[in-house]
């Protein structure tokens, strides 16, 4: 069976795409950048925010691990038996904005402050013949 890849949410990253990018927004008034898109600027309140495709590389500003199974609304589909911890980071995307993301690496010995990472689209869970995909950052 061939699985079709479906993004876990609309308007989070460009898909399908050979070079997927996260979809953020920028306020033309004060230049503040946010992720994901939001209807108004969180700094000055302007309603004129414009879509901005974000850089696909960055550095780890902060990181931690998620080692217990989150309660709902978490929808990773694991059980306490199958759950494996994952890494989480705040990524500085080339000085444009800092965003929160899951990391593909969760070993504290392999995660470094300032370490370079890149955006990857990864399988999240399976629903029938659909593979639900989400985004993560991978150390490079």
């Amino acid at each position: 069976m061939v699985l079709t890849s479906v993004p876990f949410a609309e308007d989070v990253f460009t898909w399908p795409s050979d070079n997927p990018q996260l979809i953020g927004c920028r306020c033309p008034e004060c230049k503040a950048v946010f992720f994901p898109m939001q209807p108004s600027c969180g700094v000055c309140g302007s309603l004129e925010v414009e879509q901005l495709l974000l850089p696909t590389t960055g550095t780890i500003w902060a990181w931690t691990t998620q080692e217990f199974l989150p309660k709902a609304p978490y929808a990773g589909g694991e059980t306490p038996e199958t759950f494996k911890g994952f890494g989480v980071g705040v990524i500085d995307l080339e000085g444009v904005v800092r965003i929160e993301s899951r990391l593909t690496e969760s070993d504290p010995d392999k995660l470094k402050f300032g370490g370079k990472v890149e955006l990857v689209i990864v399988p999240f869970r399976t629903e029938g013949d659909k593979e639900i995909v989400s985004f993560a950052f991978k150390p490079v």
Binding site: V12, Q38, W61, Q66, P70, P73, A75, F124
Partner: peptide, 27 residues
């Protein structure tokens, strides 16, 4: 004010925030 997917992805956790903030503070 966060999107639904933020919770579905396993990012909507206060404990994770505290881990992240303290890890950076220790560093």
């Amino acid at each position: 004010g966060a999107p639904s997917w933020y919770g579905e992805a396993g990012l909507f956790l206060t404990t994770k925030f505290f881990g992240m903030k303290m890890n950076r503070y220790m560093h």
